[in-house]
Simulated assay, not measured.
Amino acid sequence: MAWVVGTGALLGLLAIALGIVTLRTGWILPTARRHVIRPQLHGLGALLTGASALLQSLFYFRALPSVSWEVRFFGGNAFLFAGLLLIALSQMLPPRRSPVHADPSGV
């Protein structure tokens, strides 16, 4: 079981690193580059998703002070779903410089 949690911790660290790179430079992985419209939302979503995985593994290995299972469960899920929501929004929101946003009056 520990190797599964350790793998989750490594993936969490990777997601955090990718989120930081995206926020600092705007670089996105080539596989997601064509889908992402707003890189800042994508980077923040990656940070939250990675933080969720990393915190859950740190609680498992008792590297952090123990809290109740409810706090771990609901807190981890809140981070995870908020991150996934931001990643989805970074792909679905219209671009900021679309003609609709440039001239909202339609004249």
Rank of each mutant, 00 (worst) to 15 (best):
S90R: 01
G50P: 14
R33G: 08
A15D: 12
R97F: 08
L44S: 09
A46C: 13
L41N: 06
H42E: 13
N77V: 10
L89S: 08
V21C: 01
L23R: 12
L89V: 10
I20L: 07
G83W: 04
L55Q: 09
S52G: 15
A78F: 15
L29T: 03
W69F: 09
W69H: 05
W27G: 07
W27P: 02
S66W: 01
G43F: 11
G83C: 05
R34H: 04
G43T: 05
Q40T: 09
P94I: 13
L80C: 06
L44M: 15
V21M: 06
G19P: 12
G45K: 06
G19S: 06
G43D: 07
R24P: 10
A63S: 14
L44Y: 02
F74V: 15
R34L: 12
L85S: 12
A63C: 09
V67G: 06
G43M: 11
R96A: 13
V36T: 04
R38W: 08
F79Q: 07
R62M: 03
L85R: 05
L64Q: 03
A32L: 09
W27R: 13
L89K: 05
P94F: 01
L80N: 08
L18K: 11
A15H: 12
G83M: 06
A46H: 06
L48K: 09
P30G: 02
P30L: 05
G83K: 06
A17K: 04
I28F: 00
A63K: 09
L58S: 07
L23G: 00
T22G: 02
G43S: 02
H35S: 08
H42C: 13
L86F: 09
Y60K: 04
F73R: 12
V67L: 15
S90T: 02
F61M: 08
A53G: 15
L80V: 10
G19A: 12
L54A: 09
R62I: 08
F61L: 09
L18F: 08
A17I: 07
Y60N: 05
V36A: 03
L44G: 13
I16T: 12
